[in-house]
Design a protein around this nucleic acid. Structure first.
Lengths: 195, 195
DNA sequence: GCGCTACTATGACCAGTGTCATAAGCCGCG
DNA sequence: CGCGGCTTATGACACTGGTCATAGTAGCGC
């Protein structure tokens, strides 16, 4: 830990993301977020004068940045760097969590999209931005791994789509099989795309 | 129409599914469902004594059956029956809807999973059953199209995962590109699986 | 016509929501 | 000390949610 414990504002954003990815946006209350973050209730209106929408949007944005940063870590941690290995590492983050903590949580960006895409356009745009913040470094990583520039963007989209869907199925069925299936079936396709 | 207009009970289940796939489960009220179905409010407690959870579960179940039945139709409507063509038809249902009516709605089963998987186990199980009701005929169709039995189940899971994720991305970005990308990238893989 | 069942109608309740107004505490600076 | 900022505290408001209780109506068999 090179930096001190994050301030209450960051903790609230983080807590919001955690609660949203478990319960969805609508079922997550502001008071609940403050309590979960160990932050005073009064700080809500101080740090987030834009109300719940602002808090949700920042949580989504945070999740997007987080996912984007993970890509570099995954890439660095691969024994033999291949597209399929990268995808396997992305999926493993979820299978590990599900094995350790149960199937309670999903992706916060997915939850925000499902709950708010139609009703809050700012949140929908935040979700789109989050997916972009995730896809861009992923596509860059694929080109690093030898995938032609033309394919990299498409395959990054495919990887994220498949991963999000597999997370959904895994949660519903309380079984990591959809995730492992995705890795197994998609892996060869990804590696074959290398120049 | 060989059968008469469906009764109020079915209309309410249908309306619930429609509203859920737009707004999510938590944001969809019982009174709203009744109003949308043109059904009297008093019928809610009459037909669904199990309350909102029962209504949601039946809506999810209905969606699963619907998706399962569509497979046969898609299969019958293909010019040249191939796995990739089937997948393209599944995706086209969404691109068509999005082009015609905008990106307001997603998959009701996905919404129920995101909103309720952690809090209502019966709903989570209903979602799992819905995915099964979707995957089973899809896997059967793949074997019909020449995919070996061993692969068919896996590829069916992959197709549903990717489609669900692509729907999510498409809604967030208000762009059908994720759906078309999924079809383009996944198609060859699916056709190559034929014996 | 009677009675029974199926359905509808309506009002109330309580827990919960997001939001606001207002006031207090804390703390460094002058 | 005293002032002024950031932060926190707390109570109230208006509203909606699901659920329940209770009463009312429709229609059909007898």
């Amino acid at each position: 830990m090179t930096e001190a414990r994050p301030g209450p504002r960051e903790r609230m954003v983080f807590s919001a993301a955690q609660l949203i990815r478990r319960q969805g946006v609508a079922a997550t209350g502001m008071r609940e977020v403050a309590a979960h973050a160990g932050a005073p209730r009064g700080s809500l209106q101080h740090y987030f004068p834009g109300g719940k929408e602002q808090l949700v949007n920042e949580a989504v944005q945070w999740a997007g940045r987080y996912a984007g940063k993970r890509i570099a870590r995954f890439l660095a941690g691969l024994d033999e760097p291949t597209p399929s290995g990268l995808f396997a590492a992305m999926a493993a983050q979820w299978t590990d969590e599900y094995a350790a903590d149960g199937f309670a949580a999903g992706c916060p960006v997915a939850a925000a999209t499902v709950d708010r895409a139609a009703s809050a356009d700012a949140t929908r745009r935040a979700a789109a931005a989050a997916f972009t913040a995730w896809r861009a470094p992923l596509a860059a990583a694929l080109t690093d791994l030898g995938v032609p520039a033309g394919r990299a963007e498409s395959l990054a989209t495919l990887m994220i789509s498949t991963l999000e869907g597999a997370i959904l199925l895994a949660r519903a069925e309380q079984d990591t099989a959809p995730l492992t299936t995705a890795v197994r079936e998609l892996g060869p396709l990804l590696d074959a795309a290398r120049a």
